[in-house]
Design a protein around this nucleic acid. Sequence first.
DNA 1: GCCAACGTTGGC
DNA 2: GCCAACGTTGGC
Length: 140
Amino acid sequence: MRYWLFKTEPSVWSWQDQVRRGGAGEQWDGVRNYQARNFMREMAIGDRGFFYHSQSERAIVGIVEICAEAHPDGTADGPRWECVDIRALAALPRPVTLDVIKADPRLADMALVRQPRLSVQPVTRQAWDIICALGGLPQG
DNA sequence: GCCAACGTTGGC
DNA sequence: GCCAACGTTGGC
């Protein structure tokens, strides 16, 4: 199983919106960046992801699961863009803020820190475990 | 709200 | 295929 991170502006699509979709999940559409698209192509059903709120919140707030592999993004005007479907699994008991992530030397290599504008990105198993622990989910 | 970083577009 | 212009993202 691999681990990922999905970034979103909560004013556009929030964790609450995601939770409301329930087990059916929702398409992670609207991505118009090749790096992000290519990561989505690598995703497999059952992979896990962090759900990150950008803008004023700047925190990882929940955990999602990939429930459909990459398929054409219906909101795009051509076949160029794809998206996966994700569903909410659990909220983090304590959201892990960007400040906390930046302050932790073990997380200094995260794309979230190094490439702030990349909206879909891989997360290492190590970083996953550290952030889950920081967020109050010691079992990951 | 500003601005730096960076990705994309389009003219050449 | 290069590169300048432009648009967008996201932290601050």
